[in-house]
Every structure is written in C-alpha cells, then in structure tokens.
Design a protein around this nucleic acid. Structure first.
Lengths: 333, 333
DNA sequence: TTGTAGGCGTTATCAA
DNA sequence: TTGATAACGCCTACAA
C-alpha cells in the first residue's frame, strides 16, 4: 500500500541507494534530485520509521514517564522539556503509571521496547534497578523531582529541604508554635526531604515537635482533605498548617471551606506548587513554588548531552531553588 | 549487544522458527519449551518490537493526541481510556500539540510514523483531511470532544448545546436578564455549540441578546481573567456570567477575587468542568460537568472495535449528557 | 555520484 | 512439530 524507497527509485529511474542518500541529506545530481522529489510527491512517500530504526538503532524519540497525567506539576514540566527536545528534532512519547509501582516498570519497559533514545522519568519505586538495563543498552536516563538511593543517574530536583525549612520558618517567625504538616507517602523522596526541612527548622529554633501534627498522605486531593480535618481534631489544634504538594493543598482548602474555618484568623495555611490556585483562593494563599520551566529545560538539556554520548560529570545532580510566595493566608500570633 | 531470536535458538539448540513460534504462543515440544525458556532467561532476551512491527504491520499501540497536556480535562479522559486499552493489551502514546495547529499535524504524522494501530484525538484545526490518510492505511481514528464538519469519523462528545442551554436557563429562571458568556475560540466546535445553547435559550424565553455580553477567549486562564474584567465594564454590567471551560473559569474567579466582587451578591457565576474547583472556591461554584469517565471509556471501546476491523455503524456519534451542579454562586434577582 | 548486495530482527510459508 | 528461507523497508559499505 504505502510507497517504499524501492517504488520511489523505480518511479524516478534511479537506484534505491541514491534515493536513500537523498533522503538522508546526501549529495545527488541535480537532475536526480528533481526526479526523486517528484517521485516522492507523486507516490506520497514517507520513510518507514520502524525499518529505519531497526537498521540505525536510533528513533529520535525520547520517552517521558511520570506518576500521573492528572498531576499538572508534572505535565507542565513536560511542556517545557518538549520545547527543547523538539528544537533538537526529538519527539516525545509520554506515559504515566498512575502511581502504580507495577505499572511503572511495565511502562518503562514499554518505552525501551519502543527503542527510545533516552528516558526522562519521575521514579516512584525505590528499587529501580531496571534503569541499569537502559544504561547497558546505552540509553541515558534522567531522573526528575525525586532521587533514588544507590542509583547512578543524572537527576534534576528542587531543594525540597530548604523549601520546607523556609516555609515553616516563616510561620515560626510569625509566632506559630504548633505547626501541622501534611506530607506525601513516607517512602517518597520528596516527602522525606520536605519533612527533614520541617524537623530541622524546629531544631534550629529549639522548638519541640509534636508527632501528632505530622500526617502522611498520598499526594492526592483526598489525603489533603482528610488530613486537614484530622489535624483540626488534635488537642490543641495547630495554629498553622503546611501542605506539601498541589493536590493536597486543593484538598486542604476544600476542607477549610467546608468547615467554615476562617483563614488566616482561625488557621494559617501555606500550600505548594501552583500559583493559580493561590490566586483563586480567598484570601490569597501563601505558597511554595518550584521552578517548573527550569526543571523541564534542565532535564531536556542534560538528556540531549548524554544522548550525544557526552558523559562528562556523570552523574550530575541539579538542585534548583524554590520560592516562597507570601499571600494573605498567614497571620501573626 | 541485545540477544536476538537467533541467539536464543542457538543457545537452546533449536531453529529460529521454533523459537519464534513459541514466543507467539504456538505449540512446541515440551522439551524444547523448557530449553527455549531457559535460553530466554539466560540471555535476557526481549523481542525487538521494531522488527516485529516492521514485519507484522501492527504495534499494539494507540496514539492519543490532545491540545495540551496541561488541560486536566483531557488528561483525565486519557486515564480512563488507558484503563480499557491496557486490558486489551494495547499501550498508549500520548502527545499534545500545545494548541498549535501546525504542531497538530506534525504530531499526528509522528503517531503515524510510529505505526500506531489507532488514534484518538481532540482536533483543533477545522481542515484535517490528513485524517483520511490514516483511514487509507486502515488506521482507525476516533475524535473526542469536538466534531469536524466534512469528516467521516467516529466521534465522542458531550451535548454542549444543551449543557449551555441548561446553565443559562437556570440563570434566567432566577431572574437574570443580562447574562454574560465567556466563550472559547470562535472556530472551535465546542465554542460554537455552547454559544448556540446560549442563543437558543434566549430565544425560547424571548429575551434579547446584547452582543457586548458575548466574549471570545482562548480557553486559557488569562482569557477568563481578562474577559471577566471586560464584562464588568460594560454598562450596565451583566448580573450573571457563564464561563465555558475550566481554565477560563479559574481565570474568572481570579478576577472576581482581585476586584473584591461578592459572589453571588454582586455577580452570579456558573463555571465549567472541574468539580474540585467548584469546592475550592468559596462560596461554592455552580458548574457544568462533563462525564469524563464515560467519554474516555466510550472512545477506547469504539476504537478497539474499529481496530478489530468491525466497521459496523460507521461513523457513529456519541453525544453524552452533561450535568449541572448547583452551588452557592447564583442568586435570585 | 551511482548502483549492487548484504543485513538489521522478526514473522510466515512450505517442505520435510 | 520443526527448520530452511524468503520477505518486511531501510541503510551502508564497497565497487563501479
């Protein structure tokens, strides 16, 4: 059905290799060039990328693997990555594993099956030795957002520890002493780092930590909702709460609204990740923001470098700075 | 580097075709089965999907193309589609075209290059004759969310016209007479349908339409923000506004907050698409919701059917019903 | 510059 | 059931 190089060659009256050479940017006689172009147009020829990939072992495609497509933080990053990648003639295959560790591996292997030339991923499982298989096949992998112990791999993340430190410090400076924190899953890197920041700032200010004010959730809206309600039932309740990702922040705000809690009078609140949310909520939310664009562009750039075979300074770790945007959701005590 | 069938055959002491047969579920002698399995394990053999696809013309992969990965409405749909697809052993390649008509075509062709077995897409450009090329190659395409005139294609969408009709009718029944509407881009199907609903309900209630209350945006946050401000400057201003997608609803709420407008006292508001947003905002937002799960599952199911070669009732149109969730953002006049 | 021919890793046909 | 062999569409020495 679809025309092949062979067909084009026949139509143009030249050999297969001449056509192939032309397609790949080689020099051909002017007359042949015209004939080939004409043939390509007439036959509506398109290179079969499967066959090409089989032969060349390159597909000019990079795979991107994230926990969930419904997480706007990750999908926004992808957008910036693609900017860079497309400029370098690479296409992108996006996959998610719906926060499912089994699926994470399956999808990773799917990308390998598709013979992508490189992979950018947000890992969830702590044991991802299968990444090494990629390296064995000379396929570079760049990790995003989360670090995995014991894996030699380039990684782009934010300074989660200090992001958290600064947010909680802000609350402390305004007089808060009982500060709740809504964390993600215990085994996730960002959770651990953000919690470390919370603990360290308490230590630095010689404040005692009440473990009941530390809640672990699932980085989803429901967790944020439930855990905020739980925090409010502690005695005495916290005067401020720090929520450590976007979805949980949404949930927390929902709970606050439902219980008719007055922010910041009854409760001070600091959220995470999404500037728009901060402005949608009233009073405007204080929020920790991550440099989404920089994350995406950095990851894409380092991957491009590795795909070129440049393994200078491998593995390198990029730890980008966050920002604390102050809104009207914090009060002094 | 990577082991091939040939290697496996040699290791197991059988022929290439025996191994191939085994891999594809054919019958082999018990003894050979064991040897082959052992060889596969020992050599860590994995089928080269490129070569397989080249030979079989099937990749067990479907392509999904949406306007933007940052649009949670579309990414949620994908999640439900994948559920169905995965159960049928199909993988998914997700692409977006960042609302760029040029890129839309490029990405469509990228998916074709990857030899996907089927495509589900949200079209933007009105002239997408290239879809027919897919059909010529026997690759089914299912359209989502938007219909394109003059294209014979299965399509899954919602009853945009009546969604809009019902929302505006609700406002009319509560006494509103000057109702603003914030639409998407003029040339997009959903915009046109949603506007039709607005117009029809005005006609049915014999209300005159003030064209100045009809604003066209870009389905993004900024549009929602700007257009709401513009509506407020009309004289007299509308007493109610209907915003016709999620992102613009977010923008509208931001504008409302910034101007310290009291909802619903100063202005009644109906938004679109996202239940969570409705609950985050205070007072809770009235909102039109689309059946995301049903859209995704329907699209996946019809595509599977077509990929099996079943072109019964082609092309079929699924027009799913929306819901109007009433919050506290509407008042009586 | 052009053409011939071999091979990339599979699957499929057809004898044996 | 098994195995030799010919495609699938492309790239790439190498020779002309």
């Amino acid at each position: 059905m679809a025309a092949t190089i062979k067909d084009v060659a026949k139509y143009a009256g030249v050999s297969i290799s001449t056509v192939s050479k032309y397609i790949n940017g080689g020099r051909v006689r002017e007359k042949n060039r015209q004939r080939i172009e004409e043939a390509i147009k007439a036959l509506d020829f398109k290179v079969n990328e499967l066959a090409r990939g089989l032969k060349t072992n390159r597909t000019m495609t990079v795979g991107v693997l994230i926990p969930s497509l419904e997480n706007i933080f990750f999908t926004s990053i992808i957008s910036y990555m693609e900017n860079i990648l497309l400029k370098n003639r690479y296409s992108t295959i996006v996959c998610d594993y719906r926060n499912d560790v089994e699926l994470e591996k399956v999808k990773f292997e799917f990308l390998m099956d598709k013979m992508v030339d490189g992979i950018i991923m947000v890992p969830h499982e702590e044991d991802i030795q299968y990444i090494n298989k990629a390296f064995e096949k000379n396929i570079p992998v760049v990790l995003i957002d989360r670090m995995i112990k014991g894996i030699e791999c380039d990684v782009v993340l934010t300074d989660n520890l200090n992001a958290s430190y600064n947010a909680v410090e802000q609350l402390i400076m305004r007089g808060h002493r009982r500060i709740g924190i809504i964390c993600g899953p215990k085994n996730v890197y960002t959770t651990q780092e953000r919690l470390k920041g919370y603990i360290r700032v308490h230590e630095d200010y010689s404040l005692q930590i009440d473990d009941r004010l530390i809640k672990f959730g699932n980085y989803d809206v429901e967790s944020g909702y439930n855990l905020l309600l739980m925090l409010l039932e502690e005695v005495p309740p916290p005067s401020a709460v720090f929520v450590t990702n976007y979805e949980m922040t949404v949930g927390a705000v929902m709970a606050v609204n439902e219980k008719n809690i007055c922010i910041p009078h009854d409760l001070s609140l600091i959220g995470f990740d999404n500037i728009q949310l901060a402005k949608v909520v009233k009073p405007s939310l204080s929020i920790v923001t991550q440099p989404i664009q920089q994350i995406g562009e950095t990851a894409a750039t380092i991957l491009l470098k590795r795909m070129k075979g440049d393994y200078d300074k491998f593995p390198s770790v990029y730890r980008l700075k966050t920002q604390l945007l102050l809104g009207e959701s914090i009060c002094n005590i």
